[in-house]
Nucleic acid binder design. Sequence first.
DNA 1: GCGACAG
DNA 2: ATCTTGTCGC
Length: 238
Amino acid sequence: MTNLSPELLAYWEAEQNRLASKILIPSAGMGYLPDVEDIILVLDIQYQGNVAAIGGVLGNPQGEIEQVFTAQVSADVPYAPGYFCFREGPPLLKFWQNLTKAQHLQPNLIILDGHGIAHPRKFGVACWLGLHTQTPCLGCAKESLLPFEGELPDNQGSSLAIKLHNEVVGWALRTQSGVKPIFASPGYALSLETAKQLIFNLKGEYRLPDILRLADQVARAQAKNELKNDWIDWGYIS
DNA sequence: GCGACAG
DNA sequence: ATCTTGTCGC
């Protein structure tokens, strides 16, 4: 990976701190609460050089799949741990704009690969996208960025709080017995409790809920030009 | 000083 | 995330 200048990292850090102050995470029972009628959008990206191959899956709050979209967007910004939002945010926002404007769709909640406030400066990519779309957004990652203490029981449905400066900012969640946990945190307009409940309510038999796995598969297929017929492909969008 | 570090 | 072969197991 290209070494990023200390000046850029300092700027990004200041940006995250500035934007983080605009994020208000609601308390339990407040903010976004799932309704059976709601539309959930799950997003994932695979990279092929400087092109982002995006999979977007629409479903309901139980994680049942309804429709699949995919596209390619240019990705100019390099990745740096802790600054993921500046790389992955803009391509996702482009995808969102296409979905909402061109397709006239308005999902009630976004779920994406990465963190929300479970981040050193409480500003993961789920915060970035939630702010820019003004839509409730939940981050769900396969690795934690913050260290956490305590033991997560092996049984399905157990959870362990992830804390930053003694404040709960996310969860390690055991989605299946005997498999590694996944890590969920709210990014925008939903509570920690709702974030946890949403993930546990998503249908699936594997470590990752089905709808998240599908978003991953679609992005992968887009990157390799192996799309399925019932997926709606926008091709390259700018 | 060195390594680790969401995707 | 990506570069990559075979291999073990259901």
